[in-house]
Design a protein around this nucleic acid. Structure first.
Lengths: 170, 170
DNA sequence: GCGATGTTACTCGGATACTAACTGTCCGAGTAAGCCAGG
DNA sequence: CCTGGCTTACTCGGACAGTTAGTATCCGAGTAACATCGC
């Protein structure tokens, strides 16, 4: 389907709420984040598990556990998040068509397999441009942009929502 | 799976053999190209059908029919081919998570839906870089590179292969 | 000799499997904080 | 007091179902070049 999965979309949106968390608020749990964003809980849990394995977030278990960023948001790029969740997959998968050419019937055509296929070179170069672009954006920068585009009171509303959810569990 | 399909790979490899076709050789058919490259015939037929609808190649029907480039190879970019075959699909599909936030319970949150989501902006910018990179390569340039990387006699071998296939049909 | 007919090799287009990946759900296990009772 | 067990709300991890997109195959229809046959 799409090259960047919805898991990345869920993850990024939720990660933004882990940036600049006030001291008074404990680490949000997956349930907190999922219900806040309106995304499926169990699926988001898998996403955050991948983020943890990639070393982007830390998890504390047990009651009042939750997630927090493993390093400063300035040091986490969008590319980091994409790779953590979707894996390091390419936009193109070279099938090495060169080696199948009918003119060399039988013999394995030594030259056709050596070096990289020019077509895949073009694709991989394009992918590099894509990833360079993603790597230019950090969570810090992204959060700044998002908050700037929201009404000023919204961020406070979210924080009190998170706090209430911790106080009156169900 | 991959953002750029194997159909594109098949199509590109076959299109290269339509560039700089000597006058003596008639338009190759899909069967010619498919067997030359070792790719499934019927699937390649669909690929070339898309290329035709996109105006990149022209088809002549009937016996001794086949395909030829619709315009000079300098004016056909890799991006043209990708879009013709895979359609103009994005690497990302924004689900508009913003509008689902739990803090505005019920009311539709006017501000959350206006403007573009910052996250999708990043993704679409990255896609633009990707497409810019693909658009920099023309079929002419690509063909030149490929031929330069092959033994000099290979191109002749292919041409005689095509010619024989036309003479002794089966 | 010449026109009608048939054959062949194409493209065109729809219908249909098969496979893999993405998305989402369910459930059991381990873990830590807080509470509570029993010594 | 305080120590051990219980409850609770988390994360962790595997298994699995539903859906979708990509890949591939099959078949019928239309088309044009060419050969063949009958007049």
């Amino acid at each position: 389907m799409t090259h960047i999965s919805t898991g990345v979309e869920y993850g990024l949106h939720c990660l933004l709420y882990l940036v600049n968390l006030p001291k008074g608020i404990s680490n949000p749990s997956v349930r907190d984040l999922a219900e806040l964003q309106g995304v499926p809980i169990e699926y988001l849990a898998k996403v955050f598990n991948k983020l943890r394995k990639a070393g982007l977030v830390n998890a504390t278990e047990g009651v009042s556990g939750g997630y927090r960023l493993a390093r400063p948001s300035e040091n986490i790029t969008v590319l980091d998040v994409v790779r953590a969740i979707d894996g390091q997959k390419g936009i193109f998968d070279c099938k090495n068509i060169r080696g199948r050419c009918a003119v060399f019937i039988g013999q394995s055509s030594a030259w056709a397999s050596q070096g990289t296929c020019k077509i895949s070179s073009i694709m991989y170069e394009a992918q590099t441009r894509l990833e360079e672009s993603l790597a230019m954006h950090t969570l810090a920068h992204l959060t700044y942009q998002v908050i700037a585009s929201e009404p000023v009171e919204h961020q406070d509303s979210v924080m009190t929502w998170l706090q209430r959810r911790r106080q009156y569990r169900h």
